[in-house]
Amino acid sequence: MKSGSFIVLGIWLLLACQEIKDCGLESSTDYAIAGYYVADSAEKTPRVAKFNKVYEVGVSNYYISNVEDTIADDSVQLVGLPVYDQAEQVTYIFETDSVDYELDILYKPHLRIYYDNCDPVFSFKLDTVLSTTFDSVVVVNPALDRVVPENIEIYF
């Protein structure tokens, strides 16, 4: 009979280790952080970039940045690029006076209800990034999350 008590005690200990859920712990984001870097540099050197306009090809009403509207912020080293949860790819155009750079971001959206008292949340994991116009692009961290400082590095 003592064995039965040990089994009950073991189950009780397992129950005591159940996770406490909190809506505020969810930290996933719906944008990728892209950093600009100098191409053909021996060391990894951040680059201050200035684009006329950065926008997603399927979204006509909004743009990420515009040199005419955001004078103070048009020279930056990082940019946040939103991803769309109803697709698995977004394409961003980085306009300059001389050339339009193109960046394809391929990803997997993941919808879940973390806890039924919280709203459903999308999280995203980057598969790859492609560009025929930048010198090179690379995914450095696939998880879109507040704690991740940078997801994509863009070299040009």
Binding site: V8, I11, W12, L15, C23, Y115, N117
Partner: peptide, 24 residues
């Protein structure tokens, strides 16, 4: 939310206590 979790723990704690008592 936390109260609900605590309630669940107390509930299962009571169930397991009953199991031990039944065994005794």
């Amino acid at each position: 939310m936390i109260a609900k979790t605590t309630y669940r723990r107390y509930f299962f704690g009571a169930v397991l206590l009953l199991t031990v008592l039944a065994e005794a």
